[in-house]
Amino acid sequence: MHTCVSCEGFPLTIQISYGTDHDREHFVEVMEDIKVKTNRRPRTRPLEVLADAAYDDVDIRQHLRSRGIQSNIPINPRNTKKRKRGRPTRFNPETYIKRGAIERFFAWLKMGFRRLTTRYERLNIVFKGFLDIACFMMCWKRGFGEIVK
C-alpha cells in the first residue's frame, strides 16, 4: 500500500502495488493522485511533504521542487558515499515530528481491520475495495464530516 496522509491522519490517496516494489518507485503516482475538495477547484499540491529517509532520492526532490512543494526528507546515510558539494537539502526536525501521522494511520488500519494486514484476496479490485471501506470507516469514526463543514 502506498499512502499519502494529512497531518490529522486522514488518507488523501491510496494506491496498491506488488509487495516487492519499493515505495520510492510509486511516489510520483501517489503525489499526482492527491485531490482535496475545496470551494473552487480541488487542491492538488500540499505545502510540505514529510517522508522518511527511504525517499531520499534526487528524482523525488526534483519532482517536488518543480511542483513548488517543500520537501522535509532526512538524508539517508546509505545514499552518501562522500560529502556532496552545493546547497544542502532541507530538513526541519521540528516539523518532521508530524510524520507520525502516517505511522498512526497504518497502526489504526492494521489493528482495526486485520483482514488488510495479511492479504487474502487474489484480485486487486477486491483488496482495494476493502481498503477504501476501512479508510471510510476510520474517517467516519474520527469525525471527518465535522472537519469538512
Rank of each mutant, 00 (worst) to 15 (best):
Val49Phe: 06
Arg40Val: 11
Thr118Gly: 00
Lys149Ser: 07
Met138Lys: 11
Met111Ala: 08
Val49Pro: 07
Ser71Val: 04
Gly19His: 08
Arg67Met: 05
Ala51Phe: 05
Gly100Thr: 11
Ala54Met: 05
Pro93Phe: 04
Glu146Pro: 01
Ile133Ser: 08
Gln15Ile: 14
Lys84Ser: 11
Gly86Trp: 02
Thr3Tyr: 06
Ser6Tyr: 04
Gly19Asn: 12
Lys37Phe: 03
Gly143Ser: 02
Leu47Trp: 02
Arg119Ser: 01
Glu29Asn: 14
Arg142Asp: 03
Thr80Asp: 07
Ala51Ser: 04
Ile97Val: 15
Arg114Met: 02
Met111His: 13
Arg61Cys: 06
Ser17Asp: 05
Glu146Thr: 11
Arg87Cys: 06
Leu109Val: 05
Asn124Leu: 14
Phe106Gly: 08
Asp132Arg: 12
Leu12Asp: 06
Leu12Tyr: 09
Asn39Ser: 13
Met111Cys: 07
Met111Glu: 15
Val126His: 12
Trp140Asp: 02
Lys35Ser: 15
Leu109Ala: 01
Pro88Met: 11
Cys7Ala: 15
Thr3Arg: 15
Gly112His: 10
Thr118Ala: 00
Gln70Leu: 14
Ala51Cys: 01
Lys149Met: 03
Arg114Lys: 15
Ile133Asn: 02
Leu47Glu: 14
Asn79Gln: 10
Ser17Gln: 10
Pro46Trp: 06
Arg119Thr: 10
Ile125Ala: 06
Pro46Met: 07
Pro77Phe: 02
Ile60Asp: 10
Arg67Leu: 14
Val36Asp: 04
Glu103Met: 05
Met137Cys: 13
Ser66Thr: 13
Met1Asp: 05
Arg87Gly: 06
Glu32Lys: 15
Lys110Phe: 08
Cys135Arg: 11
Phe127Gly: 00
Asp23Pro: 13
Ile34Met: 08
Thr117Asp: 03
Asn39Gln: 07
Glu48Ile: 15
Ile60Pro: 02
Leu116Thr: 11
Cys7Arg: 14
Phe127Arg: 02
Ser66Gly: 08
His63Ile: 02
Pro93Arg: 07
Val28Arg: 00
Arg41Pro: 00
Pro46Ala: 08
Phe113Arg: 11
Phe127Trp: 04
Arg45Ala: 08
Glu121Arg: 03
Arg65Trp: 08
Arg24Cys: 10
Glu146Gly: 14
Met1Lys: 06
Ala134His: 04
Asp52Pro: 03
Ile14Asn: 01
Trp140Tyr: 09
Arg65Glu: 07
Arg61Asn: 08
Glu48Phe: 01
Gly145Cys: 13
Ile73Cys: 05
Ala134Tyr: 09
Pro88Gly: 07
